[in-house]
Design a protein around this nucleic acid. Structure first.
Lengths: 94, 94
DNA sequence: GCATCTGCTACGGTTTATGTAGCGATGATA
DNA sequence: TATCATCGCTACATAAACCGTAGCAGATGC
């Protein structure tokens, strides 16, 4: 599964996720990603753009059609994560 | 989404994925993950075990019930990845 | 004893991420 | 025109993560 190469990198999933509600500017995107360093954000954006899941528009960075599909494919993962966070919060903290 | 912290690390997704068909030994798991270095594999396994998605059994490492759920949640991602690999293979190589 | 597995650790070197500072461009205000 | 704020993004030094190889200690078989 080649997508792991793209998504299995720090912040890649997160960046996609933060774009779920519409375009964001570079700086706004940074804020939402726990103030990720601009160096890395720029790298991830470059990769995501190169693979065609993110595009730069007038309003900032946004998901392409392909990116939206990817995000939709991530929905079950989100659902799982919510259950997980709810059921066993202690296991992950100490 | 806190799961990104866990999954947005090198090989984390891949390790889970390789366990989809049943338990694997440490060394076998390594092989399937492009001969990932044992240091990293051990780290990822430790993290995955700590969060309860992977467990060490007699037959090697295997998914827990929680892990299987996670894997199931990853299925749509796999489906997307297959379409993506098929539709635009060039965009990711040049 | 010896060979051959196993899970896993040690270690040195490279790659990747972090954090802060700041550049050049753009737009608003005066 | 000058000033100021904000923008996307880069530079650079430090820290963390990862890689590749070697090899240990335990288990199994001969």
């Amino acid at each position: 599964m080649a997508a792991f190469d793209l998504l299995g990198r720090r912040w890649a999933l997160r960046v996609l996720w933060e774009l779920r509600d519409g375009p964001l500017s570079f700086r706004e995107l940074r804020k939402r990603c726990d103030d990720i360093s601009p160096t890395v954000l720029n790298s991830r954006l470059a990769e995501l753009r190169e693979t065609g899941v993110v595009a730069a528009g007038a309003a900032g960075y946004e998901l392409t059609a392909l990116g939206s599909e990817l995000l939709a494919a991530l929905a079950p993962l989100d659902a799982w994560a919510r259950r997980w966070a709810k059921d066993a919060p202690r296991a992950r903290r100490g």
